[in-house]
């Protein structure tokens, strides 16, 4: 598979009243054409920030991309001019946000918003863009899409809004689609519907998909490869199948143990990961996970491990072989 995107040593810092928060700390990963990459982790582990920085959408101030490179089609997105980055946003790399209620503009019609990328990136006139928007809405199964074009977001149900968001993201047949918690606010049946739809559409267009979520079930079902993030760092990289069968990082092991499985004895208790996620402005010395880790050794208090390969296409950042 061809390499589409590579992120090298990306660091994003936020300056807050309590000092500098390293929201994303020296992460590197690659994305191949047509594959689905899952990024999992707890709230505040830096998964959304790492995705937003791909399109340079980090609000600055307080956020700042301090280091690294993001190579896409042979150029570094972090060095691209404002015009170049506007040209990529929504066109080559599209983003589908969580919370479709607040992510759609309440005073513009669905049609206006879905048609916008066509007008910006393909220089279409209003009428032509509107016609394309109807097609785009049809693709995401919005019934009567010609009529619904004139509706405002508040006239759509939650699932329809998210579908409109997906339609908007897919308008220009982007190479990469980033879905940031795309189904958080929706009920389970609609979640499954939308993810299947999204996956199908990316297969149709050959786009790569990055799914950011804290829902391990979604990852298991839709992702090919997974990055597990903890406190701004990637702690485990593996294929989805591998991760579920043989999680190697203590944090990933903990995550798997905390999720109920259908085939498990009903009497077994779920095992939570003890403790709280760390304060990003005040990380512990050494490995950020060690205060909560059951397998910690002396080394963990002293220095932070970097990623090491343990088997084919499987890397972990841990001193211990569990």
């Amino acid at each position: 598979m061809a390499k589409l995107l590579s992120v090298n040593n990306l660091s994003v810092h936020f300056s807050t009243g309590n000092g500098v928060v390293k929201a994303v700390d020296q992460i590197s990963y690659e994305l191949n054409t047509g594959e689905t990459l899952g990024i999992v982790g707890e709230s505040g582990c830096g998964k959304s920030v790492s995705a937003l920085s791909l399109l340079r959408l980090i609000p600055n101030p307080p956020g700042k991309i301090v280091d690294g490179e993001i190579l896409f089609e042979g150029r570094d997105l972090l060095k691209a001019s404002k015009e170049e980055i506007c040209d990529i946003r929504g066109n080559k790399i599209a983003m589908i946000f969580q919370e479709p209620m607040t992510s759609l503009n309440p005073v513009l019609t669905i049609g206006q918003q879905v048609a916008e990328p066509f007008m910006v990136h393909q220089q279409m006139k209003k009428k032509q863009a509107a016609a394309e928007a109807v097609k785009a809405l049809k693709k995401v199964h919005i019934p009567d899409s010609g009529k619904r074009l004139a509706d405002y977001p508040h006239q759509f149900s939650g699932g329809m809004r998210q579908r409109a968001m997906i339609a908007m993201g897919l308008t220009c047949a982007p190479k990469i689609i980033i879905a940031d918690e795309p189904t958080t606010a929706l009920d389970v049946t609609i979640q499954a519907q939308l993810l299947t739809l999204m996956k199908q559409l990316t297969i149709d267009t050959g786009a790569a998909l990055i799914i950011i979520t804290h829902n391990l079930g979604i990852i298991a079902r839709y992702a090919d490869r997974v990055n597990v993030m903890y406190a701004g760092k990637i702690v485990e990289k593996a294929s989805a199948a591998d991760l579920y069968k043989y999680p190697k990082h203590p944090y990933a092991i903990g995550l798997m143990a905390s999720v109920p499985k259908l085939d498990q004895d009903v009497k077994t208790r779920l095992q939570p990961i003890e403790g709280q996620p760390p304060d990003l402005a005040d990380l512990p010395e050494g490995c950020a996970f060690h205060p909560r880790c059951r397998y910690k050794i002396e080394q963990c208090r002293v220095s932070a491990p970097s990623l090491r390969t343990i088997s084919d296409d499987h890397e972990i950042a841990c001193w211990v072989d569990v």
């Binding site: 399109l55 506007c86 946003r89 066109n91 983003m95 759609l104 503009n105 910006v120 908007m168």
Partner: peptide, 27 residues
């Protein structure tokens, strides 16, 4: 300007001026 839909507009590739005139001015 701090709303999510402004971020959406930027993510679509709209220029800053268009973001303000089309998406921010009315609300």
């Amino acid at each position: 300007l701090g709303q999510d839909y402004i971020r959406t507009a930027r993510a679509k590739g709209l220029k800053e001026m268009a973001v303000i005139m089309r998406h921010a001015a009315k609300p």
